[in-house]
Amino acid sequence: MTLLELLQLMRKHLKLVILLPIVCALAMGVYSYAFMANTYTASTSMYVLAKQTSTNSDNAANYSNLNASQMLANDVSTLLKSDRIAADTVKNLHLDSLKGYSTKVTSETTSRVITLSVTGTDPDTSAAIANEMASNVSKVAQQVMDVQSVNVIDQAVSPSSPSGPNRSMYIAVALLAGLFVAIAIVVVSDMLNTKVRNADEVEELLGLPVIGRMPAVKGGK
Rank of each mutant, 00 (worst) to 15 (best):
residue 131 N to P: 09
residue 162 P to M: 08
residue 43 S to R: 11
residue 187 V to K: 08
residue 201 E to A: 11
residue 172 A to R: 07
residue 131 N to H: 04
residue 100 G to Q: 05
residue 32 S to A: 15
residue 204 E to C: 00
residue 19 L to H: 02
residue 81 K to Y: 00
residue 165 P to A: 08
residue 119 T to K: 10
residue 154 D to C: 01
residue 137 V to M: 01
residue 150 V to E: 05
residue 148 Q to T: 05
residue 162 P to L: 04
residue 124 D to A: 13
residue 58 D to L: 12
residue 184 A to K: 03
residue 174 A to G: 02
residue 112 R to C: 02
residue 28 M to E: 14
residue 107 S to W: 06
residue 4 L to W: 08
residue 48 V to T: 02
residue 61 A to G: 10
residue 74 N to C: 00
residue 71 M to F: 14
residue 141 A to K: 06
residue 189 S to N: 14
residue 186 V to D: 08
residue 147 V to S: 00
residue 29 G to Q: 08
residue 24 C to R: 00
residue 199 A to C: 07
residue 77 S to N: 12
residue 136 N to T: 09
residue 126 S to N: 08
residue 1 M to I: 09
residue 126 S to G: 11
residue 16 L to E: 08
residue 188 V to P: 02
residue 84 R to N: 11
residue 196 V to K: 03
residue 179 L to A: 15
residue 54 S to F: 05
residue 156 A to G: 05
residue 128 A to P: 03
residue 2 T to F: 05
residue 26 L to E: 07
residue 121 T to I: 08
residue 188 V to C: 03
residue 52 Q to C: 00
residue 197 R to L: 13
residue 32 S to Y: 01
residue 46 M to K: 05
residue 103 T to M: 12
residue 140 V to D: 09
residue 19 L to G: 06
residue 207 G to F: 06
residue 78 T to I: 10
residue 34 A to S: 12
residue 125 T to H: 01
residue 57 S to I: 09
residue 168 S to D: 07
residue 68 A to N: 14
residue 95 L to G: 10
residue 205 L to K: 15
residue 52 Q to S: 15
residue 66 L to F: 09
residue 99 K to N: 15
residue 165 P to V: 01
residue 164 G to W: 10
residue 140 V to S: 04
residue 73 A to H: 07
residue 183 I to E: 05
residue 98 L to W: 07
residue 173 V to Y: 11
residue 28 M to P: 03
residue 195 K to L: 00
residue 18 I to C: 09
residue 162 P to G: 02
residue 97 S to Y: 05
residue 216 A to N: 11
residue 126 S to D: 04
residue 205 L to Y: 14
residue 184 A to W: 06
residue 57 S to V: 12
residue 201 E to R: 04
residue 188 V to W: 10
residue 63 Y to F: 11
residue 125 T to I: 07
residue 93 L to P: 04
residue 8 Q to F: 02
residue 207 G to I: 04
